[in-house]
Write a protein that binds this DNA or RNA. Structure first.
Length: 854
RNA sequence: GCCCCCGUGGCGGAAUUGGUAGACGCGCUCGACUCAAAAUCGAGUUCCGCAAGGAGUGCCGGUUCGACUCCGGCCGGGGGCACCA
């Protein structure tokens, strides 16, 4: 009787051998074709969770598969190690963010190693290490020198209690997510990266990313938000503080004769100037500032405006003037911060016009009769021809747009232009645990870069988190420095970089990590771009857009000749679990719940538990399952197998006890097949049972199934359809189990082990050794499918009458249409249904079906 | 509001270009082994029907010899963006 597979022994044994032999080290000098497989590196929050396990298992299967296919594979791992949780831990637990982070890294590294991932640990990096962020500072200065970095006053969300800037995501219902204090808007000097300079190429570049999910490309496209239209000048009837005109932007210049007002944003320079003479307007602007920015507030916010009393001249008619408003729904940071209002064909403008009694003139009509019809409570935004529009009458929108732009350009009061939704990337964070911005502020010289030989600018260790705010600001000495340019007393920048900067180039550093430079260009270019990048869809916009931008920026300044960092992208689904709630509404963790008499109860107290929705594993819902004890119990391979089974990788995977047990059974099933064969010995099938003819036929059938499995599993892994590859292996295992011992069966077992190797590598190594094979299966080649064995010589033909299946018949592959038709007509079922009448029409799809139309 | 995706057995899901719907797994049922249980193995498992047969991929309609697949319209679920001019 064969012993069970013991993962506890096998996992550790093979992991040590892989490590000792450096099996997964990527060689920079290899002559093999290269493949760079990368999963988004984790934030070291404390422990590995199931989402990590799923993500890294997928990448690992692909990395191992590519290795078996002859590629030199780069599959590295590191840590996205800067960020706020470390500072929160520092405040709550009185530990230094660095100590907390590094100890988490140690824990999580050990957990990852326990799963047997084929990673090149020699390239491990952590973004909080000065040997990483120092190079980042150098790159920042390169971008600064190239004028891709600038500093400007900008409005931020300010938490007055924690005394820090909050990202938009950290503002919940207008309050700071930690302090709960109402968030204020403040103007602060912030560093920006000129991502808008790259808007066009970032948008155009999406077209070439054909191995990215359409969804992600679309999200980026919307985020970049290209709008084409006309930017034109409105002249004021009388100047304000020397300002005689201002620009507006519109995508619908064809509706220019429907204009009934002009409006500027509350923080538009004109509004500011006018407010200087008008206390009531100043009060209105102050009121606009007060109002919240959350989605809910915007939804219900009333359109409000302030009539300045000034008027602007219509560009096509100097005698026609429009009232100038300051309006709360006009945004300073989109377009020009000023609009013309065309109430008939824009709902917001219509709401505004009705409220302030402004004229509403229809200028688009679906058909000519409608030209005189008034607009009701809904703006008309549909197609049609222009009406009431002088020389534009009769034109469709596109023609009208072209005509107005042409005239504006000819007459010199406007230009056809493109406006982007994308804003420059604000990277300043008033936090300690991040990359220090390598700039010195000097009263005389302004912002001066830290000299290269003084990099890295290292974070001070002796910081205090007892008081809110940025510890770097409060540090007694750290920021004090002499100006590198003039030598006068100056001050270090105390803001640190957004952690998204850290993750915008780590994939380059993985590919090449010299000591004295961020990367070696030639070395990096040999590995990049990443062939397959795998991570959560939550990074579809920010991280992936920033990384694309950073790479293009490095290319523009001549540091690397790569445009797109990730040629293939895959976004995997989440790991979910049922949620449980006790009667008092508190969430109950799965390991406190047990089934008693068919009902779920809290194991300790027996109180009943209600089953809630299946949701993403999260601490707040208490529905997480810690991978580590599961790995201890079932071994790495069963967990990996489960992560790949059932759910398509892009969809959510529901964790279940039954599922992991099923995976465990499969691991043992493979092991049983292998160990039975090993016990039987390579020659015991000789003088086998049954008639030779039937045996040979069965062997051929098994071999064909084997080769179909090789082809299918390979194709499925290649396309990341792991759940289908899993099904291929189940099918093959069943076919082998049913076959009597034979050389073909022995061959099938050995090959099956190779097919399973990327997914269950420890089991595969152990089986490989047990079968007496030389070397590691990790180094073995992926089996080759023989094309001749992929085709059946006998095919099953579906026989339909009027498209309904009535029978199936067997025929030699490649049978003629006539033969197939004859076979179909010979079927009893068909004869009965046709009832002696000949079919009116016969459709034959060779090797597939015959459809008889009665 | 705008944009996108998805609806297939009790459950997760399969199904090249339209061509035998339900592969594979989970669960369940029955059986074998066992004093018994666990483990394992075998058979079955879309629904209705004893059967012959019929129905069936969210709903309604269309195209087609033939539709899970293509088109139009609904309903339901999920995601992204959102006062974007």
């Amino acid at each position: 009787m064969a012993a069970r597979f013991n993962p506890l022994e096998a996992d550790a044994h093979w992991q040590k051998i892989w490590e000792d032999r450096g099996t997964f080290h990527a060689s920079d000098s290899s002559s093999r074709p290269r493949s760079y497989v990368l999963e988004m590196f984790p934030y070291p929050s404390g422990r590995i969770h199931m989402g990590h396990v799923r993500n890294y298992t997928m990448g690992d299967v692909l990395a191992r598969y590519r290795r078996m296919n002859g590629f030199e594979v780069l599959h590295p791992m590191g840590w996205d190690a800067f960020g706020m949780p470390a500072e929160n831990a520092a405040m709550e637990k009185k530990v230094h963010p660095g100590d907390w982070t590094w100890s988490n890294i140690d824990t999580m590294r050990a957990q990852l190693k326990r799963l047997g991932f084929a990673l090149d640990w020699s390239r491990e990096l952590a973004t909080c290490d000065p040997s990483y962020y120092g190079h980042e500072q150098a790159l920042f200065l390169d971008l600064f020198a190239a004028d891709l970095v600038y500093r400007k006053q900008s409005e931020v969300n300010w938490d007055p209690v924690d005394m820090t800037v909050l990202a938009n995501e950290q503002v919940i219902d207008g309050r700071g997510w930690r302090s709960g204090a109402p968030v204020e808007r403040r103007k602060l000097s912030q560093w920006f990266l000129k991502i808008t300079d790259f808007a066009e190429e970032l948008l155009d570049g999406l077209d070439d990313l054909d191995q990215w999910p359409d969804k992600v490309r679309l999200m980026q496209e919307n985020w970049i938000g290209r709008s084409q239209g006309l930017r034109f000048r409105f002249d004021l009837d009388s100047p304000v503080d020397g300002i005689a005109s201002f620009d507006v932007f519109t995508t619908r210049p064809d509706t220019i004769f429907g204009a009934s007002f002009a409006a500027v944003a509350p923080d538009h320079p004109i509004a500011t100037a006018l407010a200087g003479h008008d206390p009531a307007l100043a009060a209105f602007i102050a009121e606009c500032r007060q109002s919240g920015t959350t989605a809910a507030e915007l939804e219900t916010a009333e359109k409000k405006g302030f009539d300045t009393g000034f008027r602007v001249r219509h560009p096509f008619d100097a005698g026609w003037t429009l009232p100038l408003y300051v309006a709360n729904f006009v945004l300073m940071d989109y377009g020009t911060g000023a609009i013309f209002g065309c109430p008939a064909h824009d709902q917001r403008d219509l709401d505004f016009a009705r409220k302030y009694g402004l004229p509403v003139t229809r200028v688009v009509a679906a058909d000519p009769e409608e030209a005189a019809e008034p607009i009701g409570e809904e703006a008309y935004v549909g197609p049609g021809r222009l009406v009431n529009s002088r020389f534009l009458d009769g034109l469709v929108a596109e023609e009208g747009i072209r005509e107005v732009i042409a005239r504006a350009e000819a007459e010199g009061w406007g230009d056809g232009t493109i406006v982007w939704r994308l804003r420059d990337w604000g990277v300043s964070r008033q936090r300690y645990w991040g990359t220090p911005i390598p700039i010195v502020h000097c009263d005389k010289c302004g912002a001066v870069p830290v000299p290269r030989d003084q990099l890295p600018v290292v974070l001070p260790e002796d910081v205090d988190f007892a008081t809110p705010g940025n510890p770097l600001d409060r540090h007694p000495t750290w920021s004090k420095i002499d100006c590198p340019q003039c030598g006068a007393a100056a001050r270090r920048e105390t803001d640190t970089l957004d952690t998204f900067v850290d993750s915008s180039w780590y994939f380059i550093r993985f590919a090449s990590q010299p000591k004295d430079a961020p990367f070696d260009r030639a070395e990096a270019e040999r590995w990049l771009p990443v062939n397959q990048y795998i991570g959560g869809v939550e990074h579809a916009i920010l991280h992936l857009l920033y990384a694309r931008f950073w790479t293009r920026a490095l290319k523009r300044i001549g540091l690397i000749d790569i445009e797109e960092p990730f040629s293939g992208l895959f976004t995997q689904g989440m790991v979910t679990h049922e949620t449980y709630r006790a009667a008092d509404g508190r969430w109950v963790s799965p390991d406190e719940v047990e089934r008693r008499d068919g009902r779920l109860v809290v194991a300790a107290t027996g109180e009943p538990v209600e089953t809630g929705r299946i949701e993403k594993m999260s601490k707040s819902k208490r529905n997480t399952v810690d991978p580590e004890p599961i790995v201890d119990q079932y071994g790495a391979d069963a967990v990996r197998w489960f992560m790949l089974s059932d759910s398509p990788p892009e969809r959510d995977l529901e964790w279940s006890e039954a599922g992991i047990q099923g995976s465990w059974r499969f691991v043992q099933r493979i092991w049983r097949l292998v160990s039975e064969q090993a016990e039987r010995g390579a020659s015991s099938w000789l003088g086998g049972e049954g008639e030779a003819g039937a045996g040979a036929e069965a062997e051929r059938a098994l071999t064909r199934r084997l080769h179909r499995a090789i082809a299918a599993a390979g194709a499925n892994i290649e396309s990341l359809a792991f759940n289908k590859a899993v099904a291929n292996l189940y099918e093959l295992a069943t076919a082998i189990e049913k076959a009597p011992p034979s050389p073909a069966r022995s061959e099938a077992v050995e090959t099956m082990v190779r097919l399973a190797a990327p997914m269950v590598p420890h089991l595969a190594e152990q089986a490989w050794a047990l079968l007496g094979k030389e070397g590691l299966i990790a180094d073995a080649a992926w089996p080759e499918a023989d094309p001749a064995l992929l085709v059946e010589d006998e095919v099953t033909i579906a026989v339909q009458v009027n498209g309904k299946l009535r029978d199936t018949v067997s025929a030699p592959k490649g049978s003629s249409r006539e033969d197939l038709e004859a076979l179909a007509l010979a079927s009893d079922n068909v004869a009965r249904i046709l009832d002696g009448k000949p079919p009116r029409k016969v459709i034959v799809v060779p090797d597939r079906l015959v459809n008889l139309v009665a």
